[in-house]
């Protein structure tokens, strides 16, 4: 993906005190058209507060939030913002079609354009066969897809999703990300918060980590690994009994039952394996693995519980 020069959403030093504590401590970010930004952080880090500030549901204490395409450049909410709340924000006692109609009208889409758009969105969300079904009769995955569908009827240029895949099966999750990929392909910017590390790693174009109301990392995964951990891969060796001889390039733990060797690329792997060949005792486990977002996340935020 090539980032356009002009961001569609800009946050500049946004601060917000919420229920007595400083939830956002000067957040700054840019979101570009066609980009999917994964917002990641422990519980209580400030993700939802930030989304509520961007969507205009909370007023920041200071700082600026700007939508580039808005006629009013100072507006915090424009007609082209879409919000997908964390809960299933649809009417369970209405049908799929009825939900789409009312939320389309609330966004100012009416008449024939609304009917056309509903047909498109039903197809996009794979809900075409369930238009007359009451929402409460749908599966969890269908309800989640409808939850998203209700927010895109007005073709938002920025779509905010607060944990859109909570509680759905892998197939529905895959479908939801396919839907989001379609949106970004059409030029929409997507900002989503989630706790699903694999989704952020594999689906998002860029990752931001927020902790204690501050953005502590911003970039693509390899960059984050390099910034926080250093080398992106490592070779891990475990012994049944403490191993007291030294191994070149490996560092042991305090009990000397495991050792690790970080490497920059797989090209270095033969050299490391050559070192392991010299062992006079067979290790119980040899593991070659790349560092992921989990490692970055724990490195940035620590292992202590937050709640």
């Amino acid at each position: 993906m090539t980032e356009p020069l002009s961001p569609i959403l800009t946050l500049n030093n946004v601060r917000k005190k919420y229920r007595g504590c400083e939830a956002l401590k000067g957040i700054s970010l840019q979101l570009f058209p066609g980009e999917m930004l994964g917002f990641f952080g422990p519980n209580g880090a400030g993700k939802t507060t930030m989304i509520r500030c961007i969507s205009g549901l909370l007023k920041p204490d200071s700082g600026q939030i700007r939508m580039q395409i808005s006629a009013n450049s100072d507006a915090t909410k424009t007609a082209r913002l879409g919000l997908v709340p964390q809960n299933l924000a649809v009417y369970h006692d209405l049908t799929v079609q009825q939900n789409l109609e009312v939320f389309g009208r609330l966004e100012g889409v009416t008449g024939r354009p609304l009917q056309t758009r509903i047909a498109e969105v039903l197809d996009w969300a794979a809900l075409k066969d369930r238009t007359r079904s009451l929402v409460k009769t749908l599966s969890g995955g269908m309800q989640r897809r409808l939850n998203i569908a209700c927010s895109v009827l007005h073709r938002p240029s920025v779509l905010l999703l607060d944990e859109p895949t909570v509680g759905v099966d892998p197939q529905s999750r895959e479908r939801i990300y396919t839907m989001l990929d379609d949106l970004t392909a059409q030029g929409a910017a997507v900002l989503l918060t989630t706790h699903q590390l694999d989704e952020v790693e594999t689906r998002c174009h860029r990752i931001m980590v927020i902790d204690h109301g501050t953005i502590v990392a911003d970039g693509k995964l390899p960059d984050l690994v390099r910034q926080t951990i250093g080398r992106p891969h490592r070779v891990f060796v475990r012994f049944d009994q403490p191993y007291h001889q030294e191994l070149a390039a490996f560092s042991f733990d305090e009990h000397r039952t495991s050792a690790m060797c970080p490497i920059d690329s797989m090209q270095e792997l033969p050299q490391v394996l050559a070192v392991l060949k010299q062992l006079d005792r067979e290790p119980s486990q040899i593991d070659v693995r790349s560092f992921g977002l989990q490692d970055v996340f724990l490195a940035l935020t620590g292992r202590s519980l937050r709640e």
Partner: peptide, 9 residues
């Protein structure tokens, strides 16, 4: 349910 947030936006 969050519907109010969606409507407010």
């Amino acid at each position: 349910s969050g519907t109010l947030d969606r409507i407010l936006v």
